[in-house]
Every structure is written in C-alpha cells, then in structure tokens.
C-alpha cells in the first residue's frame, strides 16, 4: 500500500504475525476472450476465510481484481466460485479447512459466461425465475385478511426458502455445465423454487405441466451434485426435485389420472 503512516497512531495494533503462514494462490484473471491463472501469495492468519485472502490481494497487490461479494456471512450468496475445483462460497471457506502447503486454486463458476476474473454473468437465472408462474394464494381464511397455517405444514417450504440464490447448484449441475441445456432446463435452483410454490399451503396455481413440458424436470437424473454443494444444506434432490418428479408421473403417466385428464380436456 502506498501511504498509511500518517495516522498509524490511532489504528488498532495488528494481530501478532507469528501465526501467519504464507499461502500461494492461483487465481483466474481474464475476460470472456482471454485469461490465465495468476499467482499470488498471502500471509494467512488464524480464522481467515478465502474471501479475506482475495480482499487482501485486492488491497495490496491487484486493486483491479474483480470479485463479487456482500454479506461475508454466507447469507447473500454473492461470492460463489470454484475453490480447488469445488463450487463453494468464498466467505464460508475457512483457510484452515484447505490442505496446507498446497497451492489454492480459485476460479469463477464455469457454467456461466465470464465477465471478468471471478465475476460471471448469472443473468440467465433471473430470466428463468420470471418465467415461473408466481404465487397465487387462496382467499384469506379469516376476516382480518389473515390465513391459518400450522408449523408442521410449512416446515418443508421453509427449508426451500432458506435458499440464498448463490447458484452453486446451477453451476455444478451437469445438465447445464456439460450439456448446456439452458433453453430446455431450469436447473435445480428453480425446480426447488417451483417445489416451494407447489408445496406452499396457500398456493392455488398449477405448475406441474410446466415442469414436464417446459422446465425439463426429466433431464435431472438424480446425481445429487446440487445437494452436495448447497451451502444451506437444503435437500434439493430428495425433498424438492424427487417429489416434483412424482407429481409429474402422477399427473401425466398414471393411467387413471390420464383418463381424468382426457375427460377434463386438460393437456
């Protein structure tokens, strides 16, 4: 850093440097056209997370290193990246959980178009969300406009609503990552978003047809990669996607329900 000595008198003393250990990083630098790994070294002290290291590199070595972040507490889902190849939140990756004495590799999420360095274009996710039919509640149960709902009926929906939209599940999903089915498949985040709406006790909308015909739920072959990377530990596959697959089967492939559909003239 250039000049900080003038006010050093009022700064808090730096923590003792004796526990600091140098850690080497390879960080992806580049834009959509070109790029390469660049090496940096940071003195890591106790309790530091990976995002702290990136910030230190920004402050001391590369003030133009691009990186998204906000809350630094695993609540906003902004600082998603691939750390040693694993999709993770930078703010929740403690340095002492990474193998010591090994170079730490930090890359942007590879499933989304790169903007610069660690920042990717995740706008596809926002477009997808807009296509899903919004919440449509039944009429209020009570005269004051309120509804009666019981905790046991909303536990599952609340689990899904813990989602911080970090899009790590979208990043890791092979349907998107390897097969680029973005036009036919909405990804685990939005299958779960749909499940949260479908299982909401007050909702009256029907999205099961969309799941089958438009949203590509059939592409999911339950490898559970999404569940494994979810920083909120949501049971995406077991609790959201599989029950939705079952609803699709019930509604479209069950012989008796099919008969009903023919009579009711539904697609």
């Amino acid at each position: 850093m250039s000049t900080q000595t003038a006010t050093a008198a009022i700064t808090t003393p730096k923590p003792p440097a004796d526990h600091a250990r140098p850690v080497h990083f390879r960080i992806w630098r580049g834009d959509k056209d070109t790029g390469a790994f660049v090496e940096y070294t940071v003195n890591v002290t106790e309790g530091m997370v990976l995002l702290d290291c990136v910030h230190r590199i920004q402050a001391e070595q590369a003030s133009d290193l691009a990186c998204r972040w906000n809350c630094k507490a695993g609540k906003c889902g902004s600082c998603s990246a691939e750390i040693n190849g694993k999709p993770s939140l930078m703010c929740m990756t403690r340095m002492d959980t990474l193998p010591p004495d090994k170079v730490v590799t930090v890359e942007p999420m590879r499933s989304f178009p790169l903007i610069r360095d660690l920042v990717t274009d995740v706008s596809w996710n926002f477009r997808v969300k807009k296509t899903i039919k919004p919440f449509k509640p039944r009429k209020p149960d009570n005269a004051d406009g309120s509804w009666t709902m019981f905790q046991q009926d909303i536990d599952r929906v609340q689990e899904f609503r813990k989602c911080i939209e970090c899009f790590l599940c979208q990043d890791v999903c092979h349907v998107i990552r390897d097969h680029h089915k973005e036009d036919e498949f909405i990804g685990p985040r939005f299958l779960m978003y749909t499940a949260a709406l479908e299982m909401h006790p007050l909702d009256t909308e029907d999205r099961v047809g969309d799941l089958k015909n438009r949203d590509g739920i059939g592409y999911c072959n339950i490898t559970k990669c999404c569940t494994k990377v979810c920083p909120e530990h949501i049971g995406i596959t077991d609790n959201a996607i599989i029950p939705m697959k079952e609803r699709v089967v019930d509604e479209f492939y069950d012989p008796i329900t099919r008969l009903f559909r023919i009579f009711k003239g539904k697609k």
Binding site: P140, G145, M149, H200
Partner: peptide, 22 residues
Amino acid sequence: PARVLELESWGAVFDRTKEGKI
C-alpha cells in the same frame, strides 16, 4: 400489521403459533 399480512399474501412463510397464526 397490515404490511406484514400483505407479505404473507405475496408468499412469505412466517413461523407460526400453535393456533396457526404468525
């Protein structure tokens, strides 16, 4: 109170009392 109920009508899922209220 009206603004909180409005959130519920837009899909918010608050923790419940034993009687099923917010």
